[in-house]
Amino acid sequence: MTTYVYGITRAGRQDLPEDLTGIGDPPLPVRTVTGSGLAAVVSDCPQELRPKRRDLIAHQQVVTEIGRRAPVLPMRFGSVSDSDDEVRDVLAEHAGRYEKQLEELAGRVEYNVKVVHREDAVLHRVLAEDAGLRTLAEANRASGGGSYEQRLRFGEMVAERVREREDRDAELVRETLAPLAEKTRTGPENAGCFLSLSFLVDESAARRLLTETGRLEKENPHVALSVHGPLPPYSFVE
């Protein structure tokens, strides 16, 4: 039986609920493997582990449970060890590095901010900024929307302006929010938005991040920001 690892914390500090379960169907009981002053939170690994959404959420729930009690180094989903003994070996080998990171991350949380454009609003915006585009739009409308070729050409120009706005708005959001965080990291690209940023903040500084996010959206009505957190510091462990 292989061992699935959720996260690493300090030994004796996690005090997890006895009935905590993780991945698998039915969900497998969660336990700890301790060594070198550290504790790896683990469960048995199902025979066939696949990245089902339910298991992803189970992984996240276990890491969150640990993080509510003590600083945690969250594992990336799908980390499987041959045995509990191998987990102990890893803890021993990297104890210094993990201790240091746990120290640095104490009292810190991750917030992830995703940014998209509100389509109608951003189209308004790019037309407002470009007299040439407005003239083209007027001409197209005067001829009943224009020919297929005209619409295609016009739409492509609009799309180019929208992409430019994405760049400018991404820079604006980054410049506004990054100073509020201890660290900033760009999120994975497949997140369905033109900008995903993760921020490492002291728990007490989180409110300011939310306030500034709200202000950004108010001042830039074509921009929609969604804030997710507090999260375990996925983007700030190595």
Binding site: L56, I57, Q61, R76, F77, D82, G187, P188, L231, Y234
Partner: peptide, 23 residues
């Protein structure tokens, strides 16, 4: 959680000695 699952998949600690599940 659905909004941040990409972090669970693409971020987080990676340990060379461990096998990673195919995505």
């Amino acid at each position: 959680l659905y909004d941040v699952l990409e972090l669970v998949l693409d971020r987080g600690l990676v340990i060379d000695a461990f096998v990673r599940v195919s995505l």
